[in-house]
């Protein structure tokens, strides 16, 4: 990716590992996939526990409904596909059969955002936070790297109730070590600073850190917060950041209209309003290499720095 940080594994690889571990520890874990088991890495679980894995075929809607029934009968169910297909095709089933009754279904959408690359816009989910956030009671999470994905997925498995997790196709920069404690629902301050706050999640966290380093060279100290959990949102950490830094930029690999930026803005407006800017997507993208796409669609450290300059000016 365009971040200068050392690359670790893709977050979908963490998912495969967590599933295998859960399979060994718990007999109630059942995994469903809709003909993308190789890509989502649920195939790792399939290889070890074939009797608890079901390839549903290209039937995302049916998969969501079946998962609800399995969960209602006592299973802890993971369903996986590309996030675009899972949320778009399964939305009504997720609404009626999973979210409304609060079933214990873990919705794992891989290949999130535009960085899935060459396959193009039909496969890219740029609206999944919006859809998942519109399902009341569903935890919404987007880890930034391998280690945080492992920890967050493990916590989500241990909790009762529905959750949506967006994972990525591409290798992600390493941000956490096994010594770091990443907690669901607790935003992680990765860099301290008093001049402004950069809020991001997923691959955008690495870019935000890059931007913060660029700004530090000019004497501006940015706080960088990884909001890996969009719901429940860590409003306290965000309010403190708003209060202490007085300006905020939110960066996301998602449509700007209804994702991380929206929920963070809502929290900040309710606690301590400060000037804010938003770096995200305006519309559908296209085919291309992940790096070329990030550059063309404005998800770069340079764009973050430019937005930071705007909020800093507004702050004065």
């Amino acid at each position: 990716m365009s971040s200068t940080r050392a690359l670790g594994r893709a977050t979908r690889d963490a998912f495969g590992d967590v599933l295998v571990k859960l399979g060994a520890e718990r007999g109630d874990v059942v995994v469903l996939d809709a003909d993308l088991a190789k890509s989502t890495r649920s195939g790792k679980f399939q290889a070890k526990y074939p009797e608890r894995f079901f390839d549903m075929g290209i039937c995302e809607a049916n998969m969501c409904g079946v998962a609800a029934g399995l969960a209602a009968s006592g299973k802890t169910v993971f369903i996986a596909s590309f996030s675009s297909f899972l949320l778009c095709k399964g939305f009504d089933q997720l609404r009626m059969a999973v979210a409304y009754p609060g079933e214990n279904v873990k919705i794992i959408g891989t290949h999130g955002g535009i960085t899935l690359g060459e396959d193009g816009a039909s496969q890219m989910s740029i609206e999944d936070f919006a859809l998942a956030l519109s399902l009341p009671g569903v935890v919404v999470c987007h880890p930034a790297d391998d280690e945080s994905a492992k920890q967050l997925l493990t916590q989500i498995a241990a909790q009762q109730g529905p959750a949506y997790v967006r994972l990525g196709r591409e290798k992600a920069p390493t941000l956490y070590s096994a010594n770091d404690k990443v907690e669901l629902g607790r935003a992680q301050v990765l860099r301290d600073g008093g001049d402004l706050t950069l809020v991001a999640n997923g691959l955008m966290v690495g870019l935000a850190l890059d931007a913060a380093e660029q700004m530090a060279a000019t004497g501006v100290e940015a706080r960088v917060i990884d909001v890996h959990t969009l719901r429940p949102l860590d409003s306290a950490t965000l309010a403190a950041a708003a209060r202490e830094t007085g300006a905020m930029v939110v960066v996301e690999e998602h449509l700007k209209v209804a994702g991380l930026g929206s929920v963070v803005a809502q929290a900040v407006v309710e606690s301590h309003p400060v000037p804010m800017r938003f770096v995200g997507l305006e519309g559908y993208a296209e085919s291309g290499s992940p790096a070329a796409l990030l550059a063309k669609y404005g998800l770069t450290a340079e764009k973050i720095v430019a937005a930071a300059k705007e909020v800093l000016a507004a702050k004065r």
Binding site: E118, G120, S122, E286, S287, G288, S289, L293, K296
Partner: peptide, 13 residues
């Protein structure tokens, strides 16, 4: 095919 800015997208558009 499949390059940035190309008309030949990875899936039909």
């Amino acid at each position: 095919l499949r390059r940035i800015d190309a008309r030949l997208q990875g899936h039909p558009v």
